[in-house]
Write a protein that binds this DNA or RNA. Structure first.
Lengths: 342, 342
DNA sequence: TTGTAAGCGTTATCAC
DNA sequence: GTGATAACGCTTACAA
């Protein structure tokens, strides 16, 4: 069933059918109806490939992420997809893993598929090393690239990110102001976001006149158990810390379990703050104080900017949304953000 | 840059270039190399739309789910995508939401896009009412449909699911054998999977000679807080229950928080079992006893079957993978599955 | 308002 | 081994 079949059955030319399908130009109400009836009757839908070929634009966006099963990423992808579909776009999803080599490989692969734009989800795409950003800059020569929660400064590369630095600074300040002095900063990637969060942590220390100590900055890899083990090991090796500022709710959950194991009482003896405000934050005991990184808002903003770009407008290249601290049971700070009375 | 440009620069015809791209037929090593060099040099990649148009097959699979941000679904999608990509397929993702009307709408939309097959993730696609399954049956007339964790009995519809019924029966039996009598079955959808789990619960009761009571079967909607409130309300209205068998880890987490609020000690006074073995299960306090529904194995199996189908083979239509109970802190049953000594 | 025909970039079937 | 050439199904000047 193609446009020729429809045109024949409707007794018109394919051009007219095309016009009706794309409701373009002026075509008489009578013929329009006649054609619509045939289309309806035959259950015809246009071939997207022929259309893509003719139009050189496909209404398809490539969405890349390291791992779409990660809660944060999954939320971003969900919102990106829903929002793009409302604009009439399809997304093709590609999970690249974390290795630079694979990221470049898949980027190239997806890039070769006549998509209209690329969305990169996750700060790991904004590598620290500029030469690891080159593949993004190259891709942006062909089509717009939008990064969610990362930033690469190059033509045709756009980004929307959470103000991680300010949020972590505020969170860490809360820990200090409620009496913690030896705050362990726990993070799992030297990504764009990881670096910004670390900076926020450092800012807070400095602001409160606390000396920054290398041994209190810990980059961990591995899952929940590995992180708990890591913390136990640090303790047994003599490191003292009375709070954890984590770059992620998973890491914070590990810190809570660590406290449980060592008999430290939360929040009296030990405070913990997470990041992202995942469902998991509510399931910890006590519930995690954490930063809502507004992944939904970020995703929607990213798509809206992208649509502007594809419409030929040139919105600002990089925007930041403010993170929102939510005080819960793992800190001594009360809901309004002030230290609770002792 | 298209096949004509390449043929011109290489001094051959487009037919020969096409042969080289698809490494077909016999083409002399010399011309092959010459063409490959030009392709390399120009960074040429074939246009997928032209190819799709010519071949009538696109190496694209449509992946439908109600909500890709749900942890279980996200894990399934991740594995499906990875596995399909290894086979050289792209996935286009479409989140349909839970409304029947929207599911049908998006199914139609995706179905019209010249994809090679459909993957439906989540048991909600296998509706209870046969007339709500019709859209799946119709879609399967055109291309194979694979359902992950659901089942629709129709030609060209395949499925891979977890043996939810047996798993819940075993889990519920564990609750009974460790002393619980008034077990609340908590679920959130009358989906295929929800129905199978409920049946498993009923089987266990019957096997142990416990009367099934309607008021102990609760279908809840809403999030964590709503579920906690629901449980508190049931209690205040006089319903007594000493365990919860939940169809989902989120619901189980709510049950744990309910117990906390009412001062019930877990597992001494109150037992809880979840489902799916999400990360969240490890973050509850105590950690959740739960069923690993093996979403990764399911996804990989689904893709492998699908590839067989697309290769013209006809594998079995419906397969079941056994769920795996993991005993943790919310039950009195010890690791080996036997009731712990009192 | 409608129709004709060229073009989009491939693959595949013929000849040679 | 290689080269013309006809599909594939659509959009869109340009003509009528």
């Amino acid at each position: 069933m193609n446009i020729y079949d429809i045109s024949k059955k409707a007794g018109v030319s394919i051009a007219t059918v095309s016009r009706v399908i794309n409701n373009k130009d002026r075509v008489s109400e009578k013929t329009r109806k006649k054609i619509m009836d045939v289309i309806e009757q035959e259950g015809y839908t246009p071939n997207e490939y022929a259309r893509g070929l003719a139009l050189q634009s496909t209404k398809v966006i490539g969405v890349l992420c390291p791992d779409s099963s990660d809660s944060y990423t999954a939320a971003a992808i969900y919102n990106v997809e829903r929002c793009l579909r409302d604009y009439g776009y399809d997304c093709i999803l590609c999970c690249t893993g974390h290795r630079q080599e694979d990221r470049e490989k898949y980027m190239k692969l997806i890039d070769s598929k006549q998509i209209d734009a690329l969305v990169l989800v996750g700060s790991s795409y904004a590598a620290q090393d500029p030469k690891d950003q080159q593949y993004i800059i190259d891709a942006a020569k062909e089509k717009p690239v939008m990064i969610i929660n990362g930033e690469v400064d190059a033509p045709n590369v756009y980004s929307v990110a959470c103000g991680d630095e300010a949020a972590v600074e505020a969170a860490t300040s809360g820990l200090i102001e409620s009496g913690s002095r030896d705050i362990l900063f726990l993070y799992n990637a030297r990504s764009y976001s990881g670096r910004r969060k670390l900076q926020g942590y450092k800012n807070a220390l400095q602001k409160h006149g606390i000396r920054e100590r290398d041994e209190l900055i810990a980059l961990v890899t591995g899952g929940l158990d590995e992180t708990i083990d890591f913390l136990l090991r640090q303790r047994s090796e003599g490191l003292r810390f009375d709070a954890v500022m984590a770059s992620d709710d998973y890491l914070a959950a590990a810190a809570v379990k660590y406290a449980k194991k060592t008999g430290l009482k939360i929040p009296e003896d030990f405070q913990v703050i997470g990041y992202n405000d995942l469902m998991l934050a509510r399931c910890c005991e006590p519930e995690l104080t954490t930063v809502d990184s507004r992944v939904e808002d970020l995703s929607v903003a990213a798509v809206n900017y992208l649509m502007q770009i594809l419409d030929g407008e040139t919105p600002r290249q990089h925007s930041l949304l403010e993170g929102r601290l939510t005080w819960r049971g793992t800190t001594r700070t009360s809901e309004d953000g002030n230290p609770a009375p002792e």
